[in-house]
Design a protein around this nucleic acid. Structure first.
Lengths: 177, 177
DNA sequence: CATTCTGCTTGCAATATGCAATCGGATACG
DNA sequence: CGTATCCGATTGCATATTGCAAGCAGAATG
């Protein structure tokens, strides 16, 4: 996490901002899981981030202008983390990461259903998602009606999860009943 | 560079494959700079990679199936590194990284001209570029004629560089003559 | 007043990175 | 030949980052 700039190349600078093992995972959890508090990010983390690492990343991401931090009115010690526009603009990048990972890495079905939908939806769906995120994190009311992209992704995730839970062990043998 | 899998999430797995400070820069140099030998990657590296890190990354990327290694017939100690299809499929991801970096990070004009062109060209240009890379790295002849995307990007880069060299220091004050 | 929850810190061991020097073999040049 | 250069790495060592477990003080809850 040294902040010294090695070169002015866009790829390099993006890598310096997000190219470690945790930063983008934190943003993913805020973005797709709507985790807004420290404890939520800590205890519901799929990968099991350590508290000191999470604290360091939240601090750095806030300093970098990717997250903003606000007091929670319901609890004087609670902090609410929100995505900034800069982070919301990462949606296409994250979608491409998901698409590539889904194609070439040993992903689990359950966790990749969202990536699949994002890939199928393409830029129009990404734009919708970004609109929804702006409402959720920046307070800008959206014009579109109906369920948000986040809700649709989450519903599909739960559906895939339910389908998998109902059908244990059978997958490994390729059976369907 | 631990290889233990933390979760089956596509984002996480992509991050585990490429989410360090150097892996993607090596791929970038092979892809855009057509650096195919160890020494080329080492000495012409914009960010100044150390030889032990480069060796470790080349080894790991080869093991991961992102690069392939072949003997150079002209020199028994030379190795030629080539992109695999898996790495060529990173073009959209890298293009999005460039686009985001260009928008939000303090990039240098000279080094971001290629990212700009890739962004403007969009998916059709990315597809062309990937076709060209397949010819260069996988030996698959391309159907299209004319200069490759790599050549066009490089020409634009040289042009931007020349323009900047001819006009020293003036940029900082916003003068044009 | 004790318990739980809040974001976050500390100590410490393990791992990764950065840097400079160097390796043994292959090639080029005289 | 002989020696200088090039080849893809490797080694030793200092520093930086990570991972893990435990603990912190203040705020809310019962």
């Amino acid at each position: 996490m040294t902040d010294s700039i090695r070169s002015g190349c866009p790829i390099n600078l993006t890598l310096e901002a997000l190219g470690d093992r945790w930063s983008l995972l934190v943003i993913r959890d805020v973005m797709f899981g709507n985790r807004r508090h420290f404890r939520e990010l800590l205890s519901r983390s799929e990968e099991g981030i350590a508290s000191n690492i999470l604290a360091a990343r939240l601090k750095r991401l806030t300093e970098q202008g990717l997250l903003s931090r606000a007091d929670d009115p319901t609890h004087k010690q609670k902090a609410i983390y929100s995505l900034t526009e800069k982070a919301i603009q990462l949606v296409p990048l994250i979608a491409q990461m998901g698409a590539w990972g889904r194609r070439y890495m040993p992903v689990t079905q359950e966790l990749s259903i969202r990536a699949e939908l994002l890939e199928e939806g393409g830029q129009p769906l990404w734009d919708e998602f970004m609109e929804d995120l702006r409402e959720l994190h920046l307070g800008k009311p959206r014009t579109r009606k109906g369920p948000t992209v986040g809700e649709r992704l989450h519903a599909a995730f739960l559906e895939a999860k339910g389908r998998q839970d109902a059908e244990p062990a059978a997958r490994a043998k390729g059976k369907s009943a």
